[in-house]
Design a protein around this nucleic acid. Structure first.
Length: 265
DNA sequence: ACTATTTCCTGGATGC
DNA sequence: TGCATCCAGGAAATAG
């Protein structure tokens, strides 16, 4: 479900409820959400202060007062919310943490593609650069070293981190680049347009609180509004908002891909 | 080392 | 109404 703008929105709405709060108890944990499997997560966070919450790519990273970290990834259908203990517990709730201001941090995720990952003092490994601060020459260098379709490369978190299926399609449309173009054929001018398109669409989506196609809500349970501004995603057969031509849907790398053949020729 | 495909899981929409 | 099928915003694992 959530890509960079949605995760950013969750972090922003989570922050005032969580930062500086102490973990009083972990009242529920479905252990198959945990990485590494069998790690003593409850003992590791119990009684700790949550010193910070930030976003890295699509990861929601919690820093403890011990300096150790863990992150939560929401997968396709994950929701991380702040709730009153008396509020009904959603089905498929896999983590409930009591905080010292009397509220609960809850993770629900029907499909269970999400995960709770203990980092300790490790870093984020091979994860690629953040798109919001990415330089166009770096984007060009990375994309031109692959023969893959440009869209598949954009979805590769080791190439660039945080872009998913919606914003890859939206950025490519705004840049006028066909999703099946091979990475190695990209010109400097196109990489420049793509870099600006990625930043632009992500910033606008953050401002709108993210895109809610089906499951996504922020930490306060509110939906995003950016789906109304999508130019191609989930708009098969509808008129292109640029040229009035028809938006087409294909399958690329196993994912639905929407584009305008005229604007992205 | 690369790239493409399969797989994990549930639920909603669609078709018969 | 019921049942089968397909599809979904992710990404690790596997196959070629």
């Amino acid at each position: 479900m959530p890509e960079l703008p949605e995760v950013e929105t969750v972090v922003r709405t989570l922050l005032p409820h969580v930062k500086g709060r102490r973990v009083v108890a972990v009242v529920h944990l479905r252990s198959d959400m945990l990485r590494p499997a069998g790690f003593g997560f409850i003992d590791a966070i119990n009684g700790r202060l949550l010193a910070g919450v930030e976003r890295r790519a699509k990861r929601i990273v919690f820093t403890l007062d011990s300096g150790e970290r863990f992150y939560i990834h929401l997968g396709m259908t994950g929701r991380l919310t702040i709730e009153d203990p008396a509020a009904p517990v959603a089905t498929h709730t896999h983590l409930i943490i009591n905080l010292n201001h009397g509220r609960q941090l809850r993770l629900s995720d029907p499909r269970r593609f999400g995960e709770i990952v203990w980092m300790g003092t490790a870093d984020h490994g091979k994860l690629g650069p953040e798109p919001l601060t990415l330089r166009p020459d770096v984007l060009l260098a990375r994309l031109t070293q692959t023969k893959r379709a440009i869209k598949s490369a954009l979805l590769d978190q080791n190439m660039i981190a945080g872009i998913g299926n919606i914003y890859a399609d939206e950025a490519l449309h705004r840049a006028g680049v066909h999703p099946e173009r091979l990475g190695e054929t990209l010109t400097a001018a196109e990489a420049g347009r793509l870099n600006r398109a990625i930043k632009g669409v992500l910033r606008r989506a953050i401002r709108a609180g993210g895109s809610s196609i089906r499951d996504y809500v922020n930490a306060d349970g509110a939906r995003g509004g950016f789906q109304a501004s999508h130019r191609v995603y989930d708009r098969e057969g509808k008129p292109c908002r640029n040229c009035r031509g028809e938006i087409v849907r294909i399958t690329l790398g196993g994912r639905s891909t929407y584009f305008c053949p005229k604007c992205q020729g």
